[in-house]
């Protein structure tokens, strides 16, 4: 008797699958439609965001190109067909109004006080210096860690020397953060007193990224000279 009473309440498997299938179709349709509808705007937004960030660190740049530097030393333009090899590092070449290379921008990451500090720094290939940097993402304590963007003494660290050694494999001098007031060499970063850990993160992020990127792109600089 019990079984009979319960029987009409259970849904047949076919009905369940049918309903779920129908529902998935509807949902899929909605998702695809919204993806298609917003794709152009999203891409445009991303491009503007990158451009803005790069223009901020390379003030003379008027347009940018996105490149990948592969571990073998090749430099390929993103979106120009070539396949990116694993371990390739992305960087941006900024060009001024006449199409001449104004600077190279790349991202660096290092552990800060609260979380990873992600920065974008501009490399000036002519002078062999890191011209400036900006913060892409950080969770440093407001009022302490964010001094790296406003502290005059800290900003005076830039341009920061980043020349390659004779064998073009590493930097001639490792970029190091030293405690406040003890900077003597042009490749040292003078830390902010009270925000030492964040200062150190900036130095380390630049050093780590430059150690990898600069040996790869310096032989290819001619390829980047003019806007293609």
């Amino acid at each position: 008797m019990n079984v009979e009473a319960l029987a009409p309440q259970t849904t047949p498997t076919v009905a369940m699958i049918r309903t779920l299938g129908l529902l998935s179709a509807i949902c899929g349709l909605i998702i695809v439609a919204s993806y298609q509808g917003t794709y152009a705007a999203v891409q445009e937004n991303k491009r503007i965001a990158i451009e803005r960030a790069v223009f901020k660190v390379i003030p003379t740049a008027k347009s940018i190109e996105e490149y990948l530097a592969s571990p073998e030393g090749g430099v390929t333009k993103v979106g120009a067909g070539g396949t990116a090899s694993p371990g390739a590092v992305k960087f941006y070449a900024g060009y001024d109004a006449t199409g001449k290379l104004a600077g190279i921008a790349a991202e660096g990451v290092a552990k800060g006080y609260a979380d990873n500090v992600r920065i974008l720094f501009a490399y000036d290939p002519v002078a062999g210096t890191v011209a400036s940097f900006s913060v892409v993402a950080s969770r440093e304590t407001p009022g302490i860690g964010d001094k790296i963007l406003v502290n005059k003494d800290f900003l005076a660290n830039f341009p920061l020397e980043a020349k390659l050694s004779a064998d073009l494999k590493t930097l001639a001098h490792e970029i190091r953060t030293v405690k406040h007031g003890s900077k003597v060499n042009p490749w040292e970063v003078d830390a902010i007193s009270g925000a030492t850990i964040t200062s150190r993160a900036v130095g380390k992020a630049i050093n780590d990224a430059a150690q990898v990127l600069l040996p790869r792109i310096s032989p290819q600089l001619d390829k980047l000279k003019e806007k293609s």
Binding site: K179, G181, G194, T196
Partner: peptide, 16 residues
Amino acid sequence: DALAGATPLAKWKFDG
């Protein structure tokens, strides 16, 4: 000098 305002602990921690 500007560093006179740091406590002994901060001086040890950040400047050794």
